[in-house]
Design a protein around this nucleic acid. Structure first.
Lengths: 109, 109
DNA sequence: AATGTCTATCGTATTATTGCGATAATAAAA
DNA sequence: TTTTATTATCGCAATAATACGATAGACATT
């Protein structure tokens, strides 16, 4: 095994998990925080900010791009990465929906 | 390698990533959704709801317990799992903080 | 004490993730 | 055309995560 049984869960449950997985690494959190705060979104700037090798940063960017949170714009010889507002708002809504639930106080009593 | 370089990131970035990792599996999303919705929080009930083996469910519960999102209460011969409101509110605040940021529209322009 | 019920843990197989050096690819500039 | 600058991809090694059968542990009931 070692493979998630995605087919037995709902599409939404899988989507939430996939979005969470994209956030499940401190480097990707740092990337997102940087893109939210700074205008600069060139790959090379991120490589300087992050204490990781260029290949590793590029890989994290690819993952964020795959899930849709980022999109890259080629601006030779650079590539500018930006947050995709559509997916960002989707994630905001999805996590907002989960966390707006009240925790049942009657549980285990 | 294969090991995350946690020491080069901030404590908060690592905490966000760890909380996200706890949500990064559809089974754990399903567990949380069930505990938010139903009063029943006995392990055995979760095993029935989830199309996974008992050992696998127990493992997912352990991960959620380790991060602090859940706590288990022994109620022999059962174990009742509940959402830990403190950590739940921490997660809500942390994700809320990230998503309240406006996406810069001037990026890549 | 023996049994039954429920949950945790162990062991194992498989796949995924992380990290990085080396190299390829792209496109402007010299 | 050659060089330079920037980013993506490949290949590898090591660790992490997923899943589950088997088994152990905890505890009430008989």
């Amino acid at each position: 095994m070692g493979v998630t049984k995605t087919q037995v869960f709902t599409e939404k449950q899988n989507r939430i998990a996939d979005l969470a997985k994209a956030l499940a690494h401190p480097a990707r959190i740092a990337i997102i925080q940087h893109l939210l705060k700074e205008k600069s979104c060139v790959c090379g700037d991120l490589v300087e900010v992050l204490p990781l090798a260029q290949a590793t940063v590029s890989q994290h960017l690819k993952e964020l791009k795959n899930i849709g949170i980022l999109h890259g714009e080629i601006n030779p010889p650079r590539v500018c990465y930006c947050i995709n507002e559509t997916v960002w708002l989707e994630a905001k809504a999805i996590f907002g929906e989960i966390f707006e639930s009240e925790v049942a106080v009657t549980c285990c009593k």
